[in-house]
């Protein structure tokens, strides 16, 4: 079976890869590109562990085929920090103890980023619906929701935050 050559942008960098037509974007990321930060929890789009941002849109990478990303832009957990600087969401998740086992964490961070990209000052309810497609079995979501609200507040008041720390 011949493999498809795909060119796309991954975390800002132009890349290309070969994949089988039946291969999901999740499988491409993990098995072809070695980017294991994106997790598989169900393979059916129900848990959000494989969340990535595709052309600004939050998607489950297990529901996208590899060849579909031709010419498109993908953001994964590996691209979230800016060099040595963590994204405010990553910082707030660390400081707010927003994870226990951590396997759902990359998906939550990506989903939360997609939410804040679109709505920088969400209410608690908006946060809860914004990550309703992501399952966490450890935390009961309390500290995740608080940490996302905290990050939103840091990002919209960077000055206040800097003074506070």
């Amino acid at each position: 079976m011949s493999r498809t050559h795909v060119t796309c942008v991954l975390n800002g960098d132009p890349i290309d890869f070969l994949c089988n037509d039946y291969q999901t974007l999740l499988s491409v990321l993990r098995d072809e590109l070695g980017m294991i930060g994106t997790k598989e929890g169900c393979g059916t789009g129900d848990c959000g562990a494989c969340s990535v941002i595709l052309d600004g849109q939050l998607v489950c990478s297990c529901l996208v085929f590899g060849p579909e990303v031709e010419g498109r832009s993908i953001e994964t957990i590996e691209g979230m920090a800016d060099g040595q600087h963590l994204h405010p969401l990553q910082e707030s998740f660390l400081e707010g103890a927003a994870f226990q086992c951590g396997v759902c964490t990359p998906g939550f961070l990506v989903a939360a980023k997609a939410l804040l990209d679109r709505n920088p000052t969400p209410t608690e309810t908006e946060v809860r619906y914004g990550v309703a497609g992501n399952l966490c079995r450890c935390t009961g979501y309390d500290k995740i929701v608080r940490s996302i609200l905290d990050a939103a507040s840091r990002m919209s008041n960077p000055q206040t935050h800097k003074e506070a720390t």
């Binding site: 980017m35 294991i36 930060g37 994106t38 994964t76 957990i77 590996e78 979230m80 920090a81 963590l86 990553q90 998740f93 660390l94 400081e95 103890a97 994870f99 951590g102 964490t105 990359p106 961070l109």
Partner: peptide
């Protein structure tokens, strides 16, 4: 902050 935290928020 937990010691294994950084690896878990960066996908490592």
């Amino acid at each position: 902050v937990r010691h294994d935290g950084l690896d878990k928020v960066t996908g490592r």
